[in-house]
Design a protein around this nucleic acid. Sequence first.
DNA 1: CACTAGATGCTCT
DNA 2: GAGCATCTAGTGA
Length: 189
Amino acid sequence: MDPIQFARRLLGATLTVTGEEGSVAVRITETEAYGGSDDPASHAYRGPRLRNATMFGPPMHLYVYRSYGVHWCANVTCGEDGLPAAVLLRAGEVTGGHGLAEGRRGKVKKQNLARGPGNLAQALGITGEDDGLELTGDGRVRLHLGPDPSPDTISAGPRVGVSKAPDHPWRFWLTGDPTVSAYRRAISR
DNA sequence: CACTAGATGCTCT
DNA sequence: GAGCATCTAGTGA
C-alpha cells in the first residue's frame, strides 16, 4: 500500500505489545510515511542493507531501528515483498497497561508516556529484538486497525528531524490531540 | 513558555 | 569521521 495512505489509515489504530510483565496498548495519534528509492530521507533509499532488511520484506511487519545510539523507533511496513515502504509511529496515547508503561518511562505526565518515537517504543517495550515481527497474527505485537479516520480530523506537515526532502508533507497527526509530539511546533499552518 | 546544547552509538563515506 | 527518522535538562524571558 502507498505509505502515505497507510500513514493516514494508521491514525487511531491500536497497537498492543505483550511481554512477560503484561500488555501495553497504544492508540496511535501521529505517524510519518517513508518510501523507497524515490524518498531520499528513507533508510531504504540507498538500497537494501542489513539494518533495513525488514523494510524490503512483506507488509504488516514491525521494523525497529536504533536512533542516536539510545532510542528504539518502531515502524510498520506496508510495501509488498521486495518493495520498501514503511510508516514510522511517532506518538500515541496509552490506553492500556498504564502502570507498566509508567514503570518503563519513569515519572512523566500521562499524556507524554508515548510522545515521540523513542518514548513510544520504550513505553511499549519494543526493542531491536522485535524487528521483523508479524503484526497480523496473535504474536507478541498486534496491530488493530480502527475505522478509517475522517480526513477533517487529520493534519499534515513536513517530517520531523529529517534534513532531506523537507518539502514532503508526509507527517500526519490527529488534529489537536494532546499526545502528539511538538518538538517542531506548529508547522504547516 | 521558548529555545539551545549535549549525550550517545551505530552506519555509511 | 560525519551524520543521523531523538530526548532531556538547562537557561533565559
